[in-house]
Design a protein around this nucleic acid. Structure first.
Ligand SMILES: [Mn+2]
Ligand SMILES: [Mn+2]
Ligand SMILES: [Mn+2]
Ligand SMILES: [Mn+2]
Lengths: 226, 226
DNA sequence: AACTATTTTTAGCCTTGCCTAAATAATTTT
DNA sequence: AAAATTATTTAGGCAAGGCTAAAAATAGTT
């Protein structure tokens, strides 16, 4: 790994990693194009270059996957991103719907010194403001307690929100208004065709399916032992 | 001022500003090329573009100067840079020889929100770790007490270091080793052909001319009233 | 005033990362 | 299995921001 990568290259690797995490299969040019807001032809171009650099394995028409050195770079960028999000949130008074945008640009620009200083000041945290895991200094992802999207849980289950799988500003803002914030306690009232009915404090909501699938909780103790 | 400028464009404007500050004349292509570590031909190219955008006034063979809108952008970048330097120094434990490099990249990337948060946390400071003035929210440069390069002062004058006109890492590190840091008290012992002889605490140094011309002090009270 | 040396500009090229349009491969439907 | 649809790649271009080499303007010297 000789020369520093461009911002674009880093973003390609990061998003290949994130897409691989979800689907487990090779990442398609189309999926990447959509994520990166770029045309598929541009993706093909870049995949060839990254493949040339041995950062991905790329078989034309079959999609791409990270090599181990590509994965390290993706994890490094991810560590920057998530540390930045938490730093902005904890040390600079940003709310969780504001951090992503700023971190998206800063992640490519900060030094290793800056990364280390943030980690130190934050007490080497394991999760960002959305509950996303932060790779440690050795780029190992932390293994936390099991978490479940609320779409997958039975009525009666209670737990605290520990991860939200969206970075969309307006969605996050909406969740805040509904008190659906990190660590908020909620109860599954019922799974229905149009969504998940839940209780948060005294309030009840019917969360549309697509949104609900992005909200994850860790189940409460007495539930777990059952 | 429609669309956001590129990092390069911002750096050109910033350095045109800084060079204008020193010499008062139009900034030459050569001087800019040297500053920006770029060939003069590249500078000519960019000057034409910036001129097209009405950010500079450019007469071929005569150099360039900022228009008022160009100057505003330069001051904005400068504010970012100097706030960042101070933030890194005060809040993140960087030393004054480390801040410049990091700020150089971050200055183009942070949001106005980030700028405002830094200013707030730092108590709306007026000077960065090298004593360089920080433009305020309205991009006005603060007017401080008079400062003098130690090359311009008579023997016997004492004062505190209030500005250092270099960003060179190794030079700054050297100054630190000599206790020639911000606010350090020093006395001019003599102006000599090879430099300025000074006293700092119990120590005496002969500071080479070129270095000495970058060290500025504000004279002590009893000197001023004399 | 004529040379000489230095600056600056012009012209042409390169790389990066994106685009569109057209061609080709893969997948799905009938 | 053929046809139709969708996904992907190829080919050709474009804008930014560098570069080199050559031409032209300016400044300095005799
Ligand atoms: Mn990014
Ligand atoms: Mn996040
Ligand atoms: Mn810069
Ligand atoms: Mn400074």
């Amino acid at each position: 790994m000789k020369t520093k990568l461009s911002e674009s290259q880093e973003d390609y690797l990061k998003h290949i990693f994130l897409l691989s995490e979800k689907s487990d299969e090779n990442v398609s040019a189309n999926a990447l194009a959509e994520r990166l807001k770029v045309k598929p032809a541009s993706v093909t171009n870049m995949l060839k270059k990254l493949s040339e650099l041995s950062l991905i394995e790329y078989v034309p028409y079959k999609g791409a996957s990270l090599t181990s050195s590509g994965e390290l770079i993706a994890l490094e960028v991810l560590r920057h991103h998530r540390l930045l999000e938490l730093y902005l949130s904890e040390m600079m008074g940003y709310s969780w719907d504001e951090v992503h945008e700023e971190a998206e640009k800063l992640e490519h620009v900060i030094s290793e010194r800056f990364e280390a200083k943030m980690a130190e000041q934050l007490g080497h945290p394991t999760h960002d403001p959305h509950g996303d895991p932060i790779p440690d200094q050795n780029l190992k992802l932390p293994s936390g307690p099991a978490i479940y999207p609320i779409t997958s849980l039975k009525a009666g289950v209670t737990g605290a929100i520990t991860r939200v799988l969206t970075q969309d500003k307006d969605t996050l803002n909406m969740l805040t208004r509904l008190s659906l914030v990190m660590n908020a306690e909620l109860e599954i009232i019922a799974q229905e065709r149009n969504g998940v009915r839940i209780r948060v404090g005294d309030e009840r909501f019917l969360i549309p399916l697509e949104l609900a699938s992005n909200i994850c909780i860790s189940k409460n103790e007495f539930e777990k032992t059952k």
